[in-house]
């Protein structure tokens, strides 16, 4: 079970809802992923296009815990406002704090992320900050009371996979709250490696939404996260530089 604040989840795969070509594919991918937590963004309504479809209408919201993000925010104040707007819907009290500090890499602004996290925790939100793979920052976010830490595997949407497993492991080993590897996952093996490192969950979007077959990829990600978690729990063998035969030497029928 994945425990975040007062909530518990069977699935350790968190799925983003952006970039799908159509709502039908999105719904099927969400179903195939087995995800119980869905992320989404908050944006201005086009008031001249009443009746424009919305992905929320396609989903049975009772089945999911909604995790709005503060994407688009460049300051703590903007992130706090977006989070409060989302909460005013009455549909959610969790928030993914996302304060981008670099337009090219979409890496988070650590100072503003820290400020926004602190403010939102005071306001009673369940806060999951998106952060870099910096262990010191992760610890500071945990000290504030964050309910989970979400370090990037690599830049958002890059599909680069886990570029610094060592730093992710530092965060996993040195924090007590759930660590959810967020952003940069490209393939099921990336998700599985994150889980084998000991992550508590994986959040991804582009890898599924932009796959050739998003529904099949959603299932692949589900299975990869489950396999990675099982592998982590089972405990891998140590790496050795020499071979060790798997078949016994005794009783060899050769002259």
């Amino acid at each position: 079970m994945l425990h975040i604040g007062p909530y518990s989840f069977l699935s350790r795969l968190l799925l983003g809802t952006g970039k799908y070509t159509d709502f039908e594919t999105q719904k099927k991918a969400v179903d195939a992923s087995g995800s119980e937590i869905l992320t989404f963004a908050v944006r201005r309504m086009n008031i001249y296009e009443a009746g424009q479809p919305n992905f929320l209408e396609m989903l049975d919201l009772k089945k999911y815990t909604l995790l709005p993000n503060t994407a688009g925010a460049k300051t703590a104040a903007e992130a706090v406002r977006i989070a409060k707007l989302a909460k005013a819907s009455g549909l959610c009290d969790m928030v993914k704090v996302e304060v981008i500090g670099c337009a090219k890499t979409l890496l988070p602004d650590p100072v503003e992320t820290l400020k926004a996290t602190e403010e939102l925790l005071k306001e009673g939100f369940i806060v999951l900050p998106y952060t870099s793979d910096d262990i010191v920052l992760a610890r500071r976010l945990e000290e504030l009371g964050s309910h989970a830490i979400m370090p990037a595997a690599s830049p958002i949407g890059s599909g680069q996979g886990i570029i610094n497993p060592l730093y992710l492991k530092f965060i996993i080993e040195q924090t007590q709250v759930p660590v959810i590897v967020d952003a940069g996952i490209g393939s099921p093996s990336d998700a599985m490696i994150a889980m084998e490192l000991g992550a508590d969950g994986v959040l991804l979007n582009t890898a599924v939404a932009c796959a050739k077959d998003p529904v099949k990829m959603a299932l692949a990600m589900k299975l990869a996260v489950e396999a990675g978690q099982l592998g982590f729990e089972a405990g891998r063998i140590p790496r050795k530089e020499t071979a060790t035969a798997s078949s016994p030497i005794e009783g060899l029928s050769v002259k």
């Binding site: 983003g16 989404f40 963004a41 309504m45 919305n54 992905f55 994407a71 005013a88 819907s89 958002i156």
Partner: peptide, 25 residues
């Protein structure tokens, strides 16, 4: 708050933001 929308009065020159949830990661 959404449950307060019915009670919230509007008047001339109010600045109103209307937002909704969209797909995002």
């Amino acid at each position: 708050q959404n449950e307060e929308q019915n009670n919230k009065q509007i008047k001339e020159d109010d600045r109103i933001e209307l937002v909704r949830f969209v797909g995002g990661g």
